[in-house]
Every structure is written in C-alpha cells, then in structure tokens.
Nucleic acid binder design. Structure first.
Lengths: 346, 346
DNA sequence: CTGTTAGCGCCTTCAA
DNA sequence: TTGAAGGCGCTAACAG
C-alpha cells in the first residue's frame, strides 16, 4: 500500500513538484493545459494529498475535537451528531473522544487532541471539574463548553453555549405551580453537575417565591440514568408522600420514574404529575408522551460550532463569550392541572 | 499561540534535538539524568509532540475513520459510540464522519479520510451501493463494513462484521409461527438495503417452509424511520386486514406501528402482535416493552474494531473475513400466542 | 509560466 | 551517551 506522492507525479509528468502542487491547489500561475495533464495523471495514479504534510506547514488541520462525557446518554449523543453535521458543512471534520472527568482519561484526551493539532475543541460536559480543564488547556487551543455553564461564578473566563438551566428550573416550578401543585418533589439533584446545580437553584428560588414546598431527592452517582430515576422514585413512592407532582431533573430519570410508578400502580398523571427536562427523542414516543423542557440540541450544536469557528479565526484568547438558550416547555400528557380539586376542597 | 517545538527545548536545554527526541520516546541510549531534566523542561514549557510530524514519518496516525450513514438513528449512533470506546482502549482515536450513499458526500468522506492518512476505516452502512465504495477504496486503506453484509453474492471481496440478517429473518418467522400466527405482515422492506434484503429473504423462506402467508409492505424511502412505520401501519390497518401479527423490519418502524395502532384503537398484542428488530434502547422502556431481536451493537463494534486492527497490522489486502453474529430474541410484551383460539375455532 | 531552494516538526541512520 | 545530516510530503518564497 505504498502511496504515490507529489514527487512521483512530478517525475512521471516530467515537471517539478512545485508545478504539481500548483496544479493541485488551483494556483493561477500555471498553464491550463499542463494542469489538466497533471490532474489527469493524479487521477489515474490514485494520488491523494497527504493532509498531514499540508497541515504541518499551514499549521491548520481543519479538524475540531469533540470531547463527550456521558457518551451513552441520548442528549450528548444527539449533540455529537449535530456537531458533526454542522461542522462538515463548514468544511471541518470532527474527531470524537469520550471520557468522564474523574476517570483520568480526560487529561489524556486533551493532550492528544492538542498534539494532533486540532484547530479547536468542543466539550460537552456538565461537571464542575470540567472548568479546570478549560482553564488549563484553553491557552493552547480554542475551547467551547457545550451544554453547561456556571454563571453563578461569573468570573469564569470561558467560552460556552448552553441552555439556561437556571431559567429552566424557574419555568418548571412556575409551570407546576400554575397547574395547582403546591407540594412537589425535585428528583435527581446531582451535586457535581453545574447543569443540575443551576436547574435546582432556579427551581427552588421560583418555588420559594410562589410558596411551593419542595422536597429534593439526591442523586449521588455521577450520571443521571433511568435506573437512578427508578430507584429514587421508588424511595419516594414507597413511603407515604404528599407530593402531587415530581420534577425529574432529566428525561432519562423521568423514564425511571414512570417505570416505578407503573410497578406500584401509581397513575401518571392522575395521581402524580411528572415533568422532565431535555426533550430527548424517547419523550415523544407514543405511550410515553412526557411533558418536558426542550434543550434544542441542534441549536446548541450549531451555535457552539459557530462560536468555535469565530475563536479559531480571531485567535483572540482574551475575549470570552457565553451564550444562553432558553428552554421551551413541551406539553404532552404527563402533567395535569389539579386546580379544580383544590378549589373544591378549600 | 505559537507552539514550543522540540528545537526550542533543545536550545533551552543546551542539547541537540536528537537528545530531546530520545528523552521523549523512552529511548534506551540516553543518560537518565538528562532525560529527567529535559522532561521537566518540556512540562514547564507546555511542550506537546506534534503528532502530525510524527505521523508524517511513521506513516501511521493511530486514527481510524468511521463513516456513518443514518446518523440520526439510534442503532448507528450506538455503534459509533461503542466503536469510540473500544478503539480508545486500543490506543486509537476515532474520526467521525456521516453521510449517506447517494448524497454525493460519501466519496468526499473516503477521500478525506484517506488523505488524512487514517490507519483504517469502519463503515456502518447497509445500502448496496456501499459495496462499490468498499471495492473502490479498500486498495488504499483497510476497510471493515459494519452491520451489513450480502452473503447472497458470495463473491464480494470485503471485510465485514454483521448481524446475520438472513437467520434473523428466519427466526422471526419461526417465532411468530410458534405463537400460532398464520397470516402475518412484513412491514418496511427497503430495496436498497442489503440488511433488509436478507432479513426479508430469511423471513419469506422460513414462512414458506412453515406454510405461513406473508404480505410485504414496502418502504420506498432511503431510511427506516418511525414515521415510515406509522405510515405503512396506517395503510395496513385502515383496510380490512387478516394478519394477526406484524414483523417490523426495524424497531424504529415498530414504534410507528404502535402509534398508528394506538390511534386506531387496535390493541397490541391483543388484536395484533408486533415484533421488531434491533433492540434499540427505546424498546425496553416501560410502556413500550417491544418484543424484538437484539443486534448487540457493542459486540458488533468490538468485533469490527478488532478485525480492522488485524487488517492494519497484517497489511494483507488479499484475505477477506466475514463475521456473522446471530441475533437473539428478546421477549417482552408485544407478541402473544393465539394457539388456543385457533384450536377452539377449528 | 516553471523550477530551485528552504523549511514545517519530527525521527532515524551514521559518526563521533 | 550524544550530535549532525537527511528526509517524510508538501508549500512558499524567490529566481529564471
């Protein structure tokens, strides 16, 4: 599988390598005839530019790295796929890596990507420790954080595109309140996650303002899984509980809640309303029909890629941008109003 | 963002580039003391090996390309993610691309990946035209086709790892027959797809053998989507139909069938049994509980990566391997036996 | 219009 | 144990 190089072509065509290079790069200063002759020869010989060599000179690879955490989750997977699609439209290829902070692999990934001379890195990661990486590596390469952002600490000097999780939490609380719920559960708060921290904070703040009582069920694992939702929901449902609604901090967990409710013969939404967050594909399925908040992964991905491109072009490491997208309520069938009953009773 | 090179380090350390190179590569012929001194300096200066330059010499990149079709589908996405995970364990990075044959992008992708000097390519693609690409490009780089294979044409000289779709089709037919079904629908046969062709063929062959009548609903689009399943199911259900079971050629379509059935008040499995194929994550959800055949994406991915590694190592372009994995029935709640009723009636 | 020369950052002989 | 020289495949000044 020895490859034919520009030099081989030059020899065969009886010209210099420069001429071949020019033919290949649509340089203006070259005889159209010889160009055609060379191009034809290249085709016949199966010549392919060695992009590594070219990048070595131009010091641009047209490749961006994507670091995924929670690679198995549909939300992150969807992001990755949209990133690829949009980047391709802009002439960039994607180098995909996965790893969770804490597993020790992330450092290696960044080092690798930088060594590979990617033009920029997109990181989809919600954990607080992600910020360390950002600060450590963004001097070496432009990095954009996707889907998580901690405006609580307004001093972070990072670039990010994210759903506004604080507002999302607020909206969730208000929506449940509007439906008449006064005692609700926040299910699956995870401490290590900036995303969830904000969502929780927003939820609590709005709830307090509206005089709504909320009990928080904590997730001590490092991911929000369906199993965890199932587990927490059972814990909640198995003891006497007064909550009329549960807000699951992610759709995946909401699915677990559904399963637990199913098994315990608790009707959703008749006995308890269920509200999710993410609007993953699953949520729209017939028989699931989960009411939730939409994180528009495509919009996030596009916006993130675009921001990264700007950073790559400007090369300015001193300016930081945070973009926030407001999540949108997607009403389906798992939340119901209990206003009438309440007024009846009172 | 100018990068510090091996040369810079050499100058700072007062040694030659060769020495630095040796320090970096754990070469034996070097004073341990100077090595430590150099390594320390590299760390302090934030030196990173330029992998492009290294690859230029070694002509190995430790990167494999992955060409995905149907990037939005959960089956392919799952494959991609598992490929990444396993490849990483073996010290390889993944370069992810997407494109469907026929959209004109595939050619570009292969050219790009080869130009990028990936060590090998993994292609997850079921369409017949994929074989053209394989034959055209595999002289330039090792390629493994994942998840589709056409043993009908035993002369294809390709490398592949795939679910045995023919056997899968047979098993599906036999299973439905065992449950007592005698008139069934095969929903979503797609002509351009080698995968579906085999599944269909296997199904028909077994059905014929067992004396089961099957009506095929064709999918004329290029992908198997939930919408298509919905559409085809409506078409089937809206006219008088005698089928007691439908085999949906993919889970995604099965979901569409469920939705259509729901809307038309056709109970599954009471009125009609539903059998899927793929065992995507969705299928296991509470309230879905689809009976289906499992394509073990992780096993496929691992096996595919392993085969590709072998090809890369051996560099032998004259030996071809096909690996087939038998799909396994995953019984859940959408198929029921109608044996008793039949015997009552007769 | 075309060729010559000099690298990009690194590794690999071959001498010292 | 260390260094100098050459080259991987390509591009980018310069001359002709």
């Amino acid at each position: 599988m020895r490859r034919v190089t520009i030099k081989d072509i030059a020899r065969m065509a009886g010209v210099s390598v420069t001429t071949v290079s020019r033919a290949l790069n649509n340089a203006p200063e070259i005889n159209e005839e010889t160009r055609q002759r060379i191009l034809e020869l290249c085709r016949k010989e199966g010549y392919r530019t060695n992009l590594l060599a070219r990048s070595l000179i131009s010091s641009r690879t047209n490749v961006i790295g994507v670091v995924l955490s929670d690679i198995a989750g549909p939300f992150h997977a969807s992001l990755a796929l949209h990133i690829e699609t949009y980047a391709a439209q802009l002439g960039y290829q994607v180098m995909l890596c996965s790893g969770q902070p804490g597993d020790g692999r992330i450092d290696g990934l960044f080092d690798f990507l930088i060594s590979q001379r990617v033009d920029g890195i997109l990181m989809t990661n919600a954990s607080n420790s992600a910020l360390e990486f950002l600060e450590r590596y963004q001097s070496a390469v432009p990095i954009v954080l996707l889907g998580a952002f901690a405006p609580l600490e307004s001093s972070w000097r990072i670039n990010s595109v994210s759903t506004d999780n604080y507002v999302g939490g607020q909206l969730a609380a208000r929506y449940l309140h509007d439906l008449g719920h006064r005692e609700v559960a926040y299910l699956g708060m995870r401490e290590g996650s900036a995303t969830h921290l904000l969502r929780h904070r927003g939820f609590l703040d709005a709830a307090a303002e509206l005089g709504m009582e909320v009990e928080t069920a904590w997730n001590r694992e490092s991911h929000s899984t369906t199993e965890m939702g199932y587990y927490l929901a059972r814990e909640l449902f198995l003891k006497p509980f007064r909550q009329t609604a549960v807000f699951a901090a992610s759709d995946l967990m909401a699915l677990g809640v559904m399963q637990a409710a199913d098994e315990l013969d608790i009707a959703i939404p008749e006995q308890v309303s269920l509200l999710g967050f993410d609007n993953i594909d699953y949520a729209a399925l017939p028989k699931i029909r989960l009411t939730t908040f939409s994180q528009r992964t495509e919009a996030l991905a596009r916006s993130g890629v675009r921001l990264l491109m700007e950073l790559i072009k400007s090369g300015d490491g001193a300016e930081f941008t945070q973009r926030l997208l407001t999540p949108a309520l997607v009403q389906r069938d798992t939340c119901r109003s209990i206003r009438e009953e309440r007024s009846e009773r009172s």
